[in-house]
Amino acid sequence: MKWTIGEVTVTKIVELEMTGGSRFLLPQATPEAVLPITWLQPHFADATGRLRLSIHSFVVETPTRRIIVDTCLGNDKQGRRIPHWNDRDGPFLADLTAAGFPPDSIDTVLCTHLHVDHVGWNTRQVDGKWVPTFPRAQYLMGRAEYEHWQSVQDRPDMATIFADSVTPIIDAGLATMVETNARICNEITLVPTLGHTPGHVSVMIQSNGEQALITGDFMHHPCQIARPEWSTLADSDPEQGIETRHRMFRRLAGTPVLIIGTHFAGVTAGRLVADGSSYRLDV
């Protein structure tokens, strides 16, 4: 799946898709609560109200850069809380290469935040050691995001994620810490969308008068467009996350900005429009 924004192309590379099993993430999104949001079907929910979700990366090609935004779960990673995310052996790198993006062709890795399903392919295991998957790339990580998780003492899961997917990048000298409003290149600017994590960012693309926004996780599923007050259990600050969704939806509704969802399954992208007292995604 590919989108064109002026001179920029965005290509989706899927690692994992699923239907149902999302109550651990969005407990308010019961089938009974989802079914009345009829526009979610068929792309984002099935006929019984079960949510469809995806874990994928985006390769963003500008005239001067080849950027991979978020790197999914990765293979061979241990200590993950969700069993089918643990010790994976999937074809993501082969799929990435088959799409025309071999790892050594990527010059920038951009992490919207440092959760498990956004940094996993930062590294791969070689001879029992974690090495950068994209050896020619500059890895961009949020300064506030990195400093927050470095200071947290009561999250052994995050310590494990850092050990196998973040710290090896630091040690290899490939990491660059950026601010939440950093300009990456002429076409790419970060947008602070805090709440899911303390340094969370979205990615604004602007080229030849066209615009798109890669969401990251300030919303995990399009049901949160209709119900901005629905928070995920993974949010660091749920109230701030709700405020961020309301602010971003007011900013985006009725504009031509293409919304490209980091966990949106199926068609993945659309435009935000007002829908009574709330909003919907037109695809």
Rank of each mutant, 00 (worst) to 15 (best):
W230L: 02
L53F: 06
D89K: 15
P102K: 04
G20V: 03
L258N: 07
P42A: 05
R80Y: 13
M219K: 00
G173K: 08
G20A: 06
I37P: 09
D282M: 13
T9C: 11
T97Q: 13
L194F: 05
T62G: 12
G270W: 07
L73F: 06
D217T: 00
H113E: 10
G49Q: 12
D107N: 15
T244V: 03
V201A: 07
F101Y: 15
M1Y: 08
A47Q: 15
P42N: 09
T193M: 11
V69K: 04
I205E: 07
G21Q: 09
R23I: 12
W85V: 03
W149V: 00
W39R: 10
L140P: 04
D117R: 02
T30Y: 14
I188E: 07
P192E: 01
V257P: 09
I68C: 10
L35Y: 05
I13G: 07
T9E: 13
I161T: 13
R66T: 14
R124F: 07
D46Y: 08
H263V: 01
E15T: 01
M248W: 10
Q41H: 15
A265H: 15
P132G: 08
L35I: 14
P42R: 06
A163Y: 00
H196C: 04
D154S: 13
H115K: 06
I67F: 10
S202N: 04
F44S: 05
S231E: 04
T64H: 15
I106T: 03
R80D: 05
M248A: 00
W130F: 10
T215P: 11
D104A: 10
I188K: 06
D95T: 05
C223W: 06
E187F: 03
I161Q: 09
L233A: 10
L110G: 04
G79P: 11
R280C: 13
T30F: 14
F264L: 10
L114V: 00
G254F: 11
T71W: 09
E61M: 09
Q78N: 11
V8E: 05
E7I: 00
A269H: 08
P103W: 04
